[in-house]
Simulated assay, not measured.
Amino acid sequence: MAENGQDEAAKPREVGRLEWAVGALGALIVVAVLGMLGYEAAVARDGPPILLTRVIAVTPTEAGFVVRFETENRGPSTAAEVVVRATLKEGDRTVEDIETTLDYVARRSRREAGVILRRDPASGALEIAAVSYRKP
């Protein structure tokens, strides 16, 4: 009986089809990721972030008017500490001026945030724009 046990232990185990399929899939994923990283390294261009800001919605609340906005980075580089300024004007007079900071806006991505105004933005002209950033 001891001899049968030794014969079975010495016999190589056969690899099943599922194991081959999972191994092939893993290898394909690794090759795809390496290819994508190589492509990005070869064609990536350096340049400043292109930050565009637009209002998504204005919601009246007990605290004031919440102005939700989206800042999109269409540029080839990432921006950190993006300062967005919202200015409410009535004619030539600035009624409210508020700034907020977005920690991070990656290249070719979007971030949503909001500011709270005391006055209704419909009562004047609301200007909102990214005014500064830092290179991470």
Rank of each mutant, 00 (worst) to 15 (best):
R17Y: 07
A122Y: 09
F65H: 03
I50A: 10
L51T: 12
G16M: 10
A57G: 09
G114T: 01
A122T: 05
A122K: 15
G47N: 07
R134S: 13
R107M: 00
M36D: 00
A106P: 03
E96D: 05
Q6C: 13
R134E: 03
A113Q: 00
A125S: 10
P136F: 11
R74H: 14
V67Y: 00
R85F: 11
R107V: 07
T71S: 10
G16T: 12
R107W: 14
I98P: 00
D97M: 05
E70W: 00
G26F: 11
D97Y: 15
Y133P: 06
S123C: 01
R17L: 01
K135Q: 03
V131F: 13
S77G: 08
A2N: 14
V84Y: 00
S123A: 14
P49H: 14
P76L: 05
T100W: 00
I128M: 05
G64P: 11
S132N: 13
E127K: 09
P49M: 12
K135I: 08
A130N: 13
G38Q: 07
V22H: 09
L37H: 15
L126W: 00
D92L: 10
R111K: 07
V43I: 04
L102F: 01
A41S: 04
G5E: 13
E90Y: 09
R108K: 13
V67I: 12
T53W: 02
V115H: 07
G124K: 03
R111G: 06
A27R: 08
M36V: 06
N73C: 08
E81S: 05
I29H: 04
E90V: 14
Y39L: 00
E8G: 12
G38E: 01
L126N: 00
L37A: 02
R111T: 15
G47I: 11
E127Q: 01
G38C: 08
V31A: 02
A2R: 09
P76T: 04
E3G: 01
E96A: 03
P48Y: 09
Y104T: 10
P76R: 06
L25A: 13
G23R: 09
R74P: 02
L34T: 10
A27S: 04
T101F: 03
A106C: 15
V105S: 12
